[in-house]
Design a protein around this nucleic acid. Structure first.
Length: 227
DNA sequence: ACCCAGGGTCATA
DNA sequence: TATGACCATGGG
């Protein structure tokens, strides 16, 4: 076993070898959960600093109320919208953000015209919407519109910092361009990779490392010695 | 009781 | 431009 770990330690660690390790451990994730591009967009806003199980409840509240559409959300009373979003946390903040997103969608003439915009143009437009920052914009680009954009989140920083592959304090844009330049520009790859990073983060890469039977431990200087 | 979650905005220095 | 406060529920 020590020989196996030693052998893996000498093999070059690249973004693709890390991906393979994660994929072997967790399998295909088939993200994003959601029945439509609009539902993915809603989920992207609601999952900001929130656990997905809680987001599901908020989305179910919207569905049960027949309110999961840009029109219904824009027309709903702020207090009522916030009440539906309550399980996902920050409900007053997210009510405003969802409203801003839906207003923008309606201003654009709906999801269809938005889907025809070139990626960079769409990205800039999303970032101009209140409540949509870089990560949420890229979630939407990748998972709602199938654009080859790599999503950077806190887990990504943590994992690759502990692997010694980045410093960790790079700007969002710097990291996104680094990942996109190191990898083949493949939507399917970007889709699975980010999902796998999140899954691995939940298991083993909390702020305080869990590192129990971590599939990356033997390539991770920060983690070696903890197993 | 404490930690954390599939972030972003806004005020301040 | 760079921190810090703030938002808030729910599960481990």
């Amino acid at each position: 076993m020590a020989a196996v770990k030693q052998a893996m330690r000498t093999k070059a660690v690249t973004l693709m070898t890390v991906y393979e390790a994660l994929y072997q451990t967790y399998g295909p994730q088939d993200w994003w959960p959601g029945d439509s591009a609009f539902e993915v967009m809603v989920g992207a806003v609601l999952t900001q600093n929130a656990a997905w199980v809680n987001v599901e409840q908020a989305i179910n509240n919207l569905k049960r109320a027949g309110a999961l559409s840009p029109e219904q959300i824009v027309d709903s009373h702020p207090r009522r919208l916030a009440a539906w979003l309550r399980p996902s946390g920050y409900f007053n903040v997210k009510a405003r953000r969802l409203r801003a997103l839906c207003k923008w969608i309606l201003d654009q003439g709906g999801i269809k015209p938005i889907g025809k915009l070139p990626t960079q143009e769409l990205r800039q437009a999303l970032l101009a919407v209140h409540g949509i920052g870089p990560e949420t914009a890229d979630d939407i680009l990748l998972y709602a519109f199938g654009r080859p954009v790599f999503v950077i989140d806190a887990y990504t920083r943590r994992i690759f910092t502990r692997l010694g592959m980045i410093a960790g304090d790079e700007s969002y844009e710097t990291l996104r361009q680094w990942f996109e330049s190191e990898l083949a520009r493949d939507v399917r790859l970007f889709n699975e990779y980010h999902a796998l990073i999140v899954m691995h983060g939940k298991d083993n890469c909390r702020p305080r490392p869990v590192c129990k039977d971590c599939c990356l431990a033997n390539r991770c200087p920060a983690l070696s010695g903890q197993n």
